[in-house]
Nucleic acid binder design. Structure first.
Lengths: 251, 251
DNA sequence: CTCGGATCAATGTGATCACAATTTCGCCGA
DNA sequence: TCGGCGAAATTGTGATCACATTGATCCGAG
């Protein structure tokens, strides 16, 4: 049973997890920009859980700022698909369903290999070293069963590659996709643990070293497909909507 | 010579063309939403020209609203890539260059055929009729040399197809792409006229009638490639940056 | 005990104001 | 005539307030 976007749903205390005034989020620039990054980070790492309404004043109070910069940050995130505004004008973390998930996978497999290939010529020695470090940290996170560290590492690994290309067309599109499945993945991993996760990044690293475009594209595509289809088959088939799950898990 | 994003550039009177409080833009919903649609429309149809700064209060005054809803609209559009905010915090219509244009083409050819194929099963009789009407209006616009009508029709034709799919993943990505090359296309067409334009939509219509996914994908891909590469070869090669052109043309 | 309506709290929206940074323009000196 | 330099205007940003609307809460009628 799929619930509409702006139906009666159980409005609970403004926010679930912490929004994490985490580290590694730069503290310069306009306030609304800082709020934007914090909000984005909270979504990708699962600090904000699907099925819960996000209120302006609530977020503002949590972050210790006035509602004004939060308003702009929310507008920005919702433009990227990380949040949806109902006809109520109320803001939600969008629910996941099979169709949406399928389109996200498809869009990722279309765009990310392309972005990787275009970035390949720009990947220098230092970036490659950073990629290796990230890959190591991912292995550590997997062994320790640290879901959040794995997700952060995985994100950094992919975008450390794509960002080598200075152009800003493909990367924002891909960021938008990650922002959309991020919260969902978190809630899934939280239930499954890291046991099911495998590190496919070695193939990508080898392809980069060999400067092999096709191999790199194939590695990225395989990484996306195996990871996301694994999740899809093990979860989405059984529980089509993630909203109720999140709510139930909270109780 | 490519100019950086937020360099000294010639800040001229707030806005060039009219922002067009045009028709067919719904007048309900929150003010910031209306402003968003007007701003978007102005960008796609070329009402706002690249290389000119967009000021908050300027836009607000042109639209007869307070700066507040404009702020949110701009934040939203810039999140979609239709505007860029410099380190100055000043807002620009981004300049076009070969690399960016190439990535836009690539992203379009990757995403739009996919979106069309996924929409195909949902295209019913009424939608097909609307598509035929739009195609007719495009032919009329081409004969009359009406660039703006052609662009509007072309936009409507593509999204009338894609929007048949209720899911909201691929379509927003594609809208973002159109928003990015829209202003540029306008300035190009304005110089070339509609003589160089051909209507490739008939093949798409045939494919839809035949329910042929592959043919539809091919038609869309061909439409994108021929249209955009024609422009690229005839203009971008000669004048890599569109900023200066726009400014010069204004003088 | 259940249902329906009225009251009250909370939400998003928009306007206005103050402020600091930036840009622009006019002026003076070379 | 040209090149800085300082004043003034303009910009984006953030806060606060008022308001209409929506959601929750509570109370009483059945």
């Amino acid at each position: 049973m799929k619930r509409g976007i702006d139906q009666p749903p159980p409005l609970a205390p403004p926010l679930g997890g912490a929004v994490s005034p985490d580290d590694d989020i730069a503290v310069d620039g306009p306030l609304h920009d800082r709020v934007y990054r914090q909000l984005r980070h909270a979504l990708v790492t699962g600090g904000i859980v699907p099925g819960r309404a996000v209120t302006l004043r609530g977020l503002a109070q949590q972050l210790g700022v006035s509602p004004m910069p939060v308003r702009e940050a929310i507008r920005r995130v919702s433009a990227e698909g990380g949040l949806v505004v109902g006809a109520n004008r109320r803001v939600w973390v969008p629910a996941m369903d099979g169709e949406r998930y399928d389109e996200l996978i498809r869009a990722r497999t279309l765009l990310e290999p392309e972005a990787a290939v275009r970035a390949l010529p720009h990947i220098d020695r230092e970036r490659l070293d950073r990629l290796r470090d990230i890959d190591d940290s991912i292995d550590v996170a997997l062994e320790r069963g640290d879901v959040e560290a794995y997700m952060a590492g995985n994100h950094r690994f992919h975008f450390e590659i794509y960002a080598a290309n200075p152009s800003r067309v493909l990367v924002p599109l891909i960021e938008s996709l990650w922002l959309q499945f991020g919260p969902f993945m978190r809630s899934v991993y939280g239930r499954l643990g890291t046991a099911v996760l495998v590190d496919h990044h070695v193939n990508a690293l080898d392809a980069i070293i060999a400067r092999d475009s096709e191999a790199l594209a194939a590695a990225i595509r395989a990484d996306i497909l195996e990871g996301m289809e694994l999740i899809a088959s093990s979860v989405l088939a059984a529980a089509p909507a993630s909203d109720e799950d999140a709510d139930r898990r909270r109780a």
